[in-house]
Write a protein that binds this DNA or RNA. Structure first.
Length: 682
DNA sequence: GGTTACCGGGGTTACGGT
């Protein structure tokens, strides 16, 4: 079966050296991807080394042997190596590749990939003698490789002199092809810039499930740019109405998912994909998938009215696949900038759309951003804020550092040059000095919060949630996180500042991430406040908790090591507070059914830092201190004030638009517990 | 033990709708 048309013995198994696999066996998938294989073949195409994003360079070689000499499909060897170690090859050279990895990448057929241990022997075509001559003299100079065994050398000679070489181009043509291969043509365009009759590389998002027609599949795609050549979709996009099932399309029962609304207007183009690309579309693509498509021909459709795309088989390399699914979430921060920009445009489109749909009330997702950006909230300018902060701080600076002794040596914070302020002054209502024309002295306008930062001296008197296991939570990972200006959406059911429970994740199959989120109740420890110290709840978000503890969040209900590390770190900060709380809870729990809560809930949210409550100080834990005082030390830490929008049914209090008011919060930042000394080695 | 990447050239096949 594997014999050549010439009937030569070259391809018969008995002539093949042991451990050498016929290339056809790889193409017919008699081996699995990842498996290591050795093979020998003739070079018919070569792509010289090009730089990659990594440290290696990349080169590739198209090979055939006696088992594939008349095949249409090609067998590709991809070489990743430092540039200096790249082999030099010429037309018709015989290559013996020892121990390369089989892979499936960018092609409908399997190919081979070098590993660190792959050896490549190149025999220069013009020097290969006929048997019984020894092929070793045709071996091109390669660094430090010993001469292969006799059976390999014999096979090289036999193969070269018996195989049909009509697929090997002549030297001039080969060199020209190699030269052309490093000329990469820039074909990427956004959809807004595509024209009739041209070929483009596209980065797009699929807006509805593909329509599969066996030999080919059609997809509708967008990149959130507009092209006058596209069909204008309905302005008001409702579920299923824009890219819904088209009348007249045969709908195999159950095979079509409900459609999703894509952007309205002239933002989407249909692309028809033939094999081998259609297989990728069929098996890996659905609505919302991000795709890289290469060499899409753009032409007017049959009605001549609108532009369409066509992804056809590559003439020269029929197994080459030009459709690749892209993952919008990438922890390495290496996301393709073209994809990043597409996601950014999508976000802008969605924000704009939301705004249009809910003009009077602030849209939920933009609440926090508006707190910072929107002029209509009458926020002071940065300069004004700085002046205001300076004035506030200067009024409060008491140089209380001097009165502080026996500070916690395990805790340090930034901005030690900023004088310590008191919690009471931090909790005072915020004002904005409004200057008007013809009015000499500025008017003090109360504002819901200001974005001030402070340094305080404090000790921890309470924490939330009630158990350390709940200090971390699991959340969905959003595609928008790749954007540098990403801010999480407050529609998220587990938004940190809501300290909501983990519900909503049970049926979520997408990527998740563990993050820290907890709150600490701090009591002012500055000397002048000893008689009546104020308390404040401060949030600790994921980044600040990482800074504080030096630990990454994990599922603490199962990660006992992580829980132990957290406990050790927090004990440095709050002493025996956890034990005290536990004792108090046990005492209180007698006769109360002692319900064990394993999830965060809104009922458990730490008390508001409302001015009255906090300036008077809630003293629940004082009862406990009578029994046994919490033993912990004073530390200095940085606190920032910020605001968020919350629902408000009383219209008189709704100062943030219909049904919403601003709420002031405090957050810890720039504070650090000394590093954990772990006994376990890496 | 495993990431890096994916030429050029010039295009036929197809259902009917947005």
């Amino acid at each position: 079966m594997a014999s050549s048309s010439l009937g030569t013995p070259s391809s018969t198994p008995q002539n093949l050296p042991r451990q050498i696999i016929p290339i056809r066996d790889i193409l017919e998938e008699k081996v699995e991807p990842q498996q290591l294989v050795s093979f020998i073949g003739l070079v018919r195409d070569f792509r010289p080394p090009i730089a990659t994003r990594g440290t290696d360079w990349k080169s590739s070689i198209m090979l055939f042997d006696a088992s594939t000499e008349h095949d249409r499909d090609d067998f590709l060897l991809t070489i990743f190596r430092p540039r200096a170690q790249m082999p030099e090859v010429g037309a018709g050279d015989v290559i013996y590749v020892h121990s390369a990895r089989v892979q499936r990448h960018g092609s409908s057929t399997l190919s081979a990939l070098t590993t660190r241990s792959t050896r490549i022997y190149v025999f220069q075509a013009s020097l290969i003698p006929k048997v019984p001559g020894c092929a070793s003299r045709a071996l091109r100079a390669s660094s430090g490789l010993s001469v292969p065994s006799k059976d390999i050398l014999n096979y090289v000679s036999t193969l070269y002199h018996t195989v049909d070489k009509s697929r090997v181009p002549d030297v001039e043509r080969f060199d020209l092809m190699a030269k052309q291969a490093i000329n990469v043509k820039q074909k990427y365009q956004q959809l807004k810039d595509v024209h009739d009759g041209e070929f483009y590389d596209l980065i797009v998002q699929v807006v509805r499930d593909p329509y599969d027609l066996n030999d080919y599949a059609t997809i509708w795609v967008t990149d959130y740019t507009e092209n006058q050549g596209f069909y204008p979709f309905l302005e008001t996009a409702t579920e299923g109405s824009v890219y819904g099932e088209c009348a007249g399309f045969a709908q195999p029962a159950g095979s079509q998912q409900s459609a999703r609304s894509g952007p309205a207007g002239k933002m989407s183009m249909q692309i028809t994909c033939w094999e081998p690309h259609a297989s990728v579309i069929r098996s890996k693509v659905k609505a919302n998938t991000y795709l890289s498509l290469r060499n899409v021909q753009v032409r007017h459709g049959r009605n001549g009215a609108n532009l369409e795309g066509f992804l056809r088989e590559d003439h020269l390399y029929p197994s080459k696949i030009n459709a690749e699914v892209l993952q919008p979430i990438d922890d390495s921060g290496d996301l393709d900038p073209r994809l990043k920009n597409l996601i950014r445009r999508k976000r802008n489109y969605e924000l704009e759309n939301k705004r249009k749909q809910n003009p009077p009330a602030a849209s939920k997702s933009s609440k926090r951003r508006r707190a910072k950006d929107d002029d209509s909230t009458k926020q002071p300018t940065a300069k004004e804020k700085r002046a205001q902060l300076r004035a506030t701080l200067q009024a409060d600076y008491k140089r209380v550092d001097q009165g502080l002794t026996d500070m916690n040596p395990e805790v340090s914070c930034q901005n030690m040059d900023v004088p310590i302020t008191t919690v009471a002054s931090m909790l005072e209502a915020a004002y904005y000095n409004l200057t008007l024309e013809d009015v000499i002295s500025p008017i003090r306008v109360p504002v819901p919060f200001n974005n001030a930062k402070y340094r305080i001296a404090a000790r921890v008197t309470d924490f939330f949630p009630q158990t350390l296991e709940q200090f971390s939570y699991c959340r969905k990972v959003s595609e928008y996180e790749a954007l540098t200006d990403y801010e999480s959406d407050s529609d998220d059911p587990v938004h940190p500042y809501s300290l909501a429970d983990d519900d909503g994740l049970d049926n979520f199959a997408g990527p998740r991430k563990w993050e820290w989120c907890f709150a600490l109740q701090l009591e002012d420890a500055s000397p002048q406040c000893r008689s009546n110290p104020s308390r404040v709840w401060v949030y600790v978000d994921n980044a600040e908790a990482q800074c504080l503890t030096g630990l990454d969040a994990s599922d603490l209900r199962s990660d006992t090591q992580g829980l132990g590390n957290l406990r050790t770190q927090m004990a440095k900060l709050w002493g025996n507070l956890e034990e005290q709380k536990l004792r108090r809870k046990k005492t209180a729990g007698i006769g109360k059914g002692n319900k064990r809560k394993t999830k965060r809930s809104r009922d458990n949210i730490p008390p508001d830092n409302s001015d009255i409550e906090m300036s008077q100080g809630s003293r629940k834990s004082d009862h406990a201190t009578k029994e046994a005082p919490v033993a912990n030390k004073v530390f200095s830490c940085c606190i920032r004030q910020f605001g968020s929008m919350v629902k408000e049914s009383n219209p008189d209090k709704a100062d943030a638009g219909d049904g919403f008011r601003w709420k002031r919060h405090f957050g810890l930042f720039g504070t650090k517990i000394s590093y954990l000394e772990t006994s376990s080695s890496l």
